[in-house]
Design a protein around this nucleic acid. Structure first.
Length: 897
RNA sequence: GGGCGCAUAGCUCAGCUGGGAGAGCGCCUGCCUUACAAGCAGGAUGUCGGAGGUUCAAGUCCUUCUGCGCCCACCA
């Protein structure tokens, strides 16, 4: 048979194309199967996918493939996010390299560039997902700005507006005075800067000679002060609270108020409050109903609210002039050197100015409550409790959500303003003002926060606001797999939007996956240049290897370090599996699966040799455990179980044990032929099952192995067949079969393993080369063992490199003896036997056994233990003790001999 | 400042509801035993970060300390 010694990763592409052609990824909305739905966290179209995406999507694909095989109507909806601000910034940077600015292109021209960008990067992302093996339903692929989703966004805005849950109000935004635009927090770079803290004092009104002193890093904003605040517990100022202070530059009296926000330890313990130019002060202003005086023009100069004396001055100049003025009036105290962080616009480096602008808000109190309740009453679960806490903490401290962004890339807010200042909100462009009928309407230039559209993702992707069959069948989804970084930006918002518009949670399980870091445990980032492109790894190792590595050896919620060496164990394992399959297929000659009842029939292994029943028993236990771990989303543990089974139990023990039966026929008897068929059947059955268990993790290689095995077993591939399906991804998930659990067979094989290991250890110790075949003799301890060793002696001989294994009842002379459970084994090694050393070795054994027995005795004699420990545990200890005592007796009799 | 995570073999990490410390890589010894040298067999390696406590029993639960890391808020 001509099968390459290593698996060819280049086959992945062809396999994926075949899956696409056959439509295996498609979910059928009209099927009567129970739906299982996952919505992809839509990757931002800002850049290609990174290793974190590879992990996140591998996890989703594992779950969706698992459920599909279990017989669910599995739907994984793919798509991408327009990522308003992030994409706009990236594209602007690109354009800047060509010397093009946003304004020179105009709104239409700029948007054209963005759609071009989307074609390239959105497409690249989809390509990457396919390379990874993602079994998404590509017919249902969506984009947050496609027609359907845009319609959903407008619909939600209009409905919330009509219900009074959306309002327009003033709010501070980060404003760049150079670029003349508001910028997001993400674009603000914080830098430690050397600066000064100026100490001043304001006269207290009506109390001649009384002052209240304060510190500020921005003296110019005194023009916008509308209060002085102190801590309510601060006794130094208690008498002044309720009084007024006087700002000489503005000829304005402002109240002295008490607010917890003030730290009595800092500065003088009194703070000037400028609600229009500082986020904290803004909050204080809200609490105390203070006026907000905007004293800056959009270009950063002082406006008319600053007073005639200062109007038109740049911030720097105003600061100087005001400081001089205060000094003149004797109100300046001192300056102190400080370092503090200053926000700068990451593109132009100019210090960001908080400025008041009219913004759109969603009222959150009413919307947040059901989302919080869902978590509190357990309907919404997180894979780890700590993630749930992040979620509920945020919702408990919820503030109204500012949904307008001064950008062009995104869904434009469907609000129209007439010349009389009325607002008309409408999904379609209105002809006239709904209040006054004015026909000269101007649409709000702003777009929505990108999360406003992604909050709708679980139902907008299924056709909402239409009443579609997809919505009916696939909403709510089953699990959301995402990164912990967006628990409140995205997860919480999807939950309350789902509750609000669908009347149902969008999902019940939230699966937060860890972060992929570099080999030093640092975050992979562009600035560090330590990112690794998943495609590069896939090209070199194949997607299967990458996927298996990403979920192996790590709890899924823990952060994981990525480095190339970690790929090798995964690659080696798949190679092992490949070769095991090669071996099985080379030895299936003469097998006709038809001769055996369907593997789904209970009791099919009755009458099979003990090792066959053992491996079948182990397999069915494995099936149970893997299924359980996958249900519990413990992917790493599930993968580890499969790897251990394949490598250790199947390859290292079972395959080696059945070799005599496969190569058999040496003695030419009929019984051997039947035993050979049993081995062939068991080999192929177990392998075919384990390949199915592994499929969600490594979809490509398992598809090849599945098809090859079905062919080798003489099972024609038939669409709809649970086992011989033309694709493994639509074959049935193996199930736990109580009738195949065989504790007796397991106990027997454990004894065989113990015996074989003991012989091997002696061989190594005595440095007997593999080429030297020895004749092993066994004295079984009882009838049961006699039968067992008789049945398996050919296998034992092969496993420990013996020329023969014979049962006897008289100890041979000049032999090394080892005592194991159920037998004493003799290795006649004449010349190598050193009586002295043998006695020493046996004494060591004796001592070890005595220690073990003593350990158990001390446990069993502890009344607390026997009274409170579980019954099964006590029995297990007693059984062990019994076995050790029997072995000890044998060792001692050997010592006496 | 608030919240959270991690600390287990030389390295990277598993260890679910408490019941005799594990894997992979690396290391030592011997093997090209015709499925696999990306392999096989045998082996060495740990006061499970420190200190208390709960329990018959603690890597696992509680308290506290130390060292790394992350998130949120912010330094007037």
């Amino acid at each position: 048979m001509d099968i390459p010694k290593t698996y060819d990763k280049n086959r992945e592409r062809g396999i994926y194309e075949r899956w696409m052609e056959k439509g295996y990824f498609r979910a059928d909305v009209s099927s009567d199967r129970t739906p299982y739905t996952i919505m992809i966290p839509p990757p931002n179209i800002t850049a290609k996918l990174h290793m974190g995406h590879a992990l996140n999507n591998t996890i989703q694909d594992i779950l969706i493939r698992f459920k599909r095989m279990q017989g669910f109507e599995a739907l994984w909806v793919p798509g991408t996010d327009h990522a308003a601000i992030a994409t706009e910034v990236v594209v602007m940077k690109e354009l800047a390299k060509q010397g093009i600015t946003k304004d020179s292109l105009g709104r239409e021209g700029f948007l054209e560039k963005l759609w071009e960008w989307n074609d390239i990067y959105g497409g690249e992302i989809i390509n990457q997902l396919k390379k990874l093996g993602s079994s998404c339903d590509w017919d249902r692929q969506r984009f947050t700005m496609d027609d359907g989703l845009s319609d959903a966004v407008l619909e939600v805005f209009v409905r919330l507006y009509n219900e009074g849950l959306i309002y327009r109000g003033e709010r501070l935004v980060n404003w760049c005075v150079k670029c003349g635009t508001s910028i997001s927090d993400a674009e603000v770079e914080h830098e430690e800067r050397q600066s000064h803290l100026w100490h001043f004092k304001y006269p207290v009104v009506g109390q001649e000679g009384s002052y209240i002193s304060f510190a500020t890093s921005r003296p110019e904003t005194m023009l916008g002060d509308t209060a002085i605040a102190v801590n309510p517990k601060d006794e130094r100022y208690a008498a002044l609270v309720g009084k007024k202070a006087y700002i000489p530059m503005c000829n304005r009296e402002i109240p002295i108020i008490a607010d917890d926000y003030v730290d009595p330890e800092f500065g003088t313990g009194a703070v000037k409050i400028t609600p229009a130019h500082d986020p904290n002060d803004f909050e204080v202003g809200l609490r105390h109903d203070l006026p907000r005086i905007n004293m800056l023009n959009d270009d950063g100069t002082i406006n008319k609210n600053g007073g005639a004396e200062y109007e038109g001055l740049a911030r720097k100049d105003a600061r100087k002039k005001i400081t001089e003025k205060m000094t003149e009036l004797g109100l300046f105290i001192k300056t102190v050197e400080i370092t503090h962080s200053v926000g700068e616009h990451d593109r132009c480096g100019i210090i960001v100015e908080p400025l008041m602008k009219l913004q759109w808000f969603v009222k959150m109190e009413e919307l947040a409550k059901p989302a919080l309740d869902a978590y509190k009453n357990g309907k919404l679960k997180f894979n780890r409790e700590r993630f749930g806490k992040i979620y509920s903490n945020w919702l408990e401290n919820i503030r109204d959500w500012c949904i307008s962004r001064q950008l062009w890339w995104g869904h434009r807010i469907p609000a129209y303003y007439c010349t009389n200042g009325h607002i008309t909100v409408s999904k379609t462009t209105p002809e006239k003002c709904s209040t006054c009928g004015d026909t000269s309407l101007i649409q709000d230039p702003d777009v929505f926060d990108t999360w406003f559209s992604s909050a709708l993702w679980p139902f907008s992707t299924l056709g909402w606001p239409g009443k579609t069959a997809d919505l009916k069948k696939f909403y709510p989804t089953d699990v959301l797999v995402t990164d912990r970084g967006i628990i409140f930006h995205w997860v919480a918002r999807m939950v309350f939007m789902g509750e609000k518009f669908m009347g149902e949670l969008p999902f019940k399980d939230v699966f937060i996956n860890g972060t992929v870091q570099d080999e030093l445990g640092r975050k992979m980032s562009k600035s560090l240049g330590n990112g690794i492109d998943p495609l590069e790894i896939i090209d070199e190792f194949g997607a299967d290897v990458l996927r298996l590595m990403l979920v192996s050896g790590n709890a899924v919620d823990n952060d994981t370090r990525f480095f190339r060496e970690r790929l090798e164990p995964a690659r080696n394992f798949l190679n092992k599996l490949w070769n095991a399959t090669r071996f099985v297929m080379m030895n299936l000659e003469g097998l006709s699966a038809k001769d055996y009842a369907s593997s789904d029939t209970p009791g099919v292994l009755i009458g099979f040799p003990v090792e066959d029943r053992w491996i079948a028993s182990r397999l069915t236990r494995l099936t149970h455990e893997v299924t359980e771990k996958l249900e519990a989303h413990e992917l790493g543990l599930a993968a580890q179980k499969i790897v251990d089974f394949v490598w250790d139990e199947f390859c290292d023990w079972y395959v080696e044990m059945v070799k005599p039966r496969l190569y058999g026929g040496k003695d030419g008897n009929i019984a051997a032929q039947e035993s050979r068929n049993d081995a062939q059947f068991t080999l192929s059955l177990v392998l075919a099952s384990v390949v199915r268990l592994l499929h969600p993790f490594t979809p490509f290689i398992t598809e090849d192995l599945h098809i090859a095995l079905c062919n080798a077993m003489g099972m024609p591939l038939t669409e709809g067949d649970d086992i011989a399906s033309p694709t493994i991804m639509r074959s049935a998930w193996p199930f736990y079969r109580a009738d195949e659990v065989d504790p007796e067979a397991e106990k027997c094989i454990e004894r065989i393993k113990e015996a074989v290991r003991a012989v091997r250890a002696v061989r190594t110790e005595k440095q007997v080369p593999p080429s030297q075949k020895i004749a092993v003799q066994i004295i079984p301890a009882d009838d049961e063992s006699t039968a067992l060793f008789e049945e398996t002696k050919a296998a034992i001989a092969l496993l420990c490199g013996a020329i023969s294994v014979e049962l006897t009842d008289t100890p041979p002379k000049n032999a090394v003896s080892v005592v194991v459970s159920g037998a004493t084994i003799y290795l006649p090694l004449d010349s190598l036997v050193d009586a002295e050393k043998e006695r020493a070795r046996l004494s060591r054994e004796q001592k070890k056994l005595q220690q073990e027995i003593a350990r158990i005795d001390s446990k069993l004699s502890n009344e607390g233990f026997t009274a409170k420990a579980p019954e099964a545990l006590i029995k297990a200890e007693r059984d062990k003790r019994e076995n050790y005592i029997a072995m000890l007796a044998k060792v001692e009799s050997e010592l006496e001999a």
